[in-house]
Write a protein that binds this DNA or RNA. Structure first.
Lengths: 103, 103
DNA sequence: TTGATAGGCAAGTCACCACTTGCCTATCGT
DNA sequence: ACGATAGGCAAGTGGTGACTTGCCTATCAA
């Protein structure tokens, strides 16, 4: 749940990926690889980025859609609106009060 | 920076500590240890919690004040309001500090 | 069909992180 | 003074996560 979201956000490279998807949504794996290189100087292997995208997808922050041999990645900011509100006091009426970890 | 905030939030135990400080602010190390045991079933050593608090403090999420042999820990939610907004777009006016009329 | 493009799977390496153990210092109560 | 409480420092260990390497599948264009 929110556990996976925090783990996904813990890595700087994954946050850059979210930045790139915020800038342009629906990119493929190779497009993201290229932008990480040219705009951030990150020389990562394709598999590294692929694994990062898998983490982001399992956290619900990225959704994917296949078209032929292409796989487009779309940003989903919905999980981001819940996670911080639990410490920000009763001003943000996002999530009522779920202590996370309850099955 | 925000990097340290995300790293601090990555650990579940540290998030529980923030929860306990949200519930009651200004607790000492031993109080937090006790609450983690009795309310979450976490059997951690005192040093483990101390190190967690150090991480939270270096991230700016917890401020400390000494009084005699006691050291009280206070929650600071200010860093939490900046970090998520970069992906949520300019729609959510979560941070009132940002100038409102910036296009 | 052939070659090029886009992506997936699996094992392996390496560094960092959470946690422990052991010992030390400082403050308070009696 | 003494012991008890509250906290700190440093080295060591185990496990997880980030990244790589190598090989494999699927789709499209020529």
């Amino acid at each position: 749940m929110a556990d996976d979201v925090f783990k996904a956000l813990a890595d700087p490279t994954r946050r850059r990926i979210l930045d790139e998807l915020t800038d342009r949504n629906g990119q493929t794996l190779f497009e993201i690889c290229g932008r990480l290189v040219t705009r951030h100087g990150l020389g990562l292997s394709r598999q590294a980025v692929s694994q990062h995208l898998a983490v982001l997808e399992s956290a619900g922050l990225v959704s994917t859609r296949r078209e032929g041999r292409y796989k487009f990645h779309d940003l989903d900011t919905e999980p981001l609106e819940h996670i911080v509100g639990r410490w920000l006091g009763p001003k943000t009426p996002r999530t009522p009060k779920t202590p996370e970890g309850t099955p």
